[in-house]
């Protein structure tokens, strides 16, 4: 599996689309200047912009890498060569996933470092009202990476059954969008007004989707990072456990589906 992880990483680093996406990180240079235009809360705005830029780049990477990696291997017929080696399909799938997941963490480290420099410059120029909570900023970046690794797993699982890139690309985007609001929808449906206004069928369907789709809101710690709010360790631990279990389930389903796929 290690060699599959290695070739996956080599493939990502040598890909021109990835290089193009990473050029976006140049925008970190402009963040302190742009934030200074707000005249107040410059550091907070710098933090917001930096974390949002990381999120945007990571989303692009997750969609691009997660949705196209398996699909491209099948489309370009690389799978005929690789799957005829003594490699099980599940090993291949997990190896590809781990390669991308490791890359996402490396990208988070690189982008996070650029963000920290950017936020530091802004905070030195315009000291914030509340001291910066670096641990919250770093944890927010790490959990952002975990969130997008979940999106990668979903995209790869969709790619195991898809014959085109539409399903993995748009499926992953839809899952990401839905995953960020499932918790709010669930909370709303528990309120008395929703119980009265929403039909039972819709409520049951929403409940099924709540358990089926990833709950990504637990990975969004931007508010803690921007306003220096101390983190809830127990909540973080719960999110980390959820991450591992959800990834495990999604990849197991992906491996089962991929094992049944015919390589025509």
């Amino acid at each position: 599996m290690l060699s599959i992880v290695t070739i996956t990483l080599k493939g990502i680093f040598r890909d021109r689309i990835f290089q193009g996406i990473m050029v976006l990180s140049v925008l970190f240079i402009f963040i302190p200047s742009v934030a200074s235009l707000s005249m107040r809360q410059v550091t907070e705005l710098s933090t917001t912009l930096s974390l949002s830029l990381i999120s945007f780049i990571m989303l692009l990477l997750a969609i691009f890498l997660g949705a196209t990696s398996i699909w491209k291997d099948i489309e370009r017929r690389y799978t005929f060569s690789v799957l005829s080696l003594p490699v099980s399909r599940s090993t291949y799938l997990v190896g590809r996933f781990l390669g991308i997941a490791i890359f996402m963490l490396i990208a988070a480290l690189f982008l996070g470092s650029a963000a920290i420099v950017s936020i530091k410059i802004a905070s030195l120029t315009y000291p914030p009202a509340r001291p910066l909570l670096w641990s919250a900023i770093i944890t927010s970046i790490v959990f952002d990476a975990l969130k997008y690794i979940i999106v990668v797993a979903v995209a790869m699982t969709l790619a195991t059954v898809s014959t085109s890139f539409f399903l993995p690309v748009f499926g992953a985007i839809s899952t990401f969008l839905a995953g960020t609001v499932t918790q709010q929808v669930y909370d709303y449906l528990q309120t008395p007004s929703a119980q009265a206004a929403v039909s039972v069928v819709v409520r049951k369907s929403a409940l099924v989707l709540y358990y089926l789709l990833p709950n990504l809101s637990g990975f969004d710690l931007k508010v803690h990072a921007i306003y220096a709010i101390p983190l809830n360790t127990q909540g973080l631990l719960l999110s980390a456990v959820y991450f591992l279990i959800y990834i495990g389930i999604v990849l197991s389903v992906g491996a089962l589906l991929f094992a049944r796929r015919e390589m025509k």
Partner: peptide
């Protein structure tokens, strides 16, 4: 079974390999 491929060298028709390698 995966093990069946342990003693085989296989060349697919019109082969394609990871072209970045």
């Amino acid at each position: 079974l995966t093990d069946s491929r342990r003693q085989v060298g296989f060349l697919p028709e019109n082969p394609a390999f990871y072209d970045y390698l």
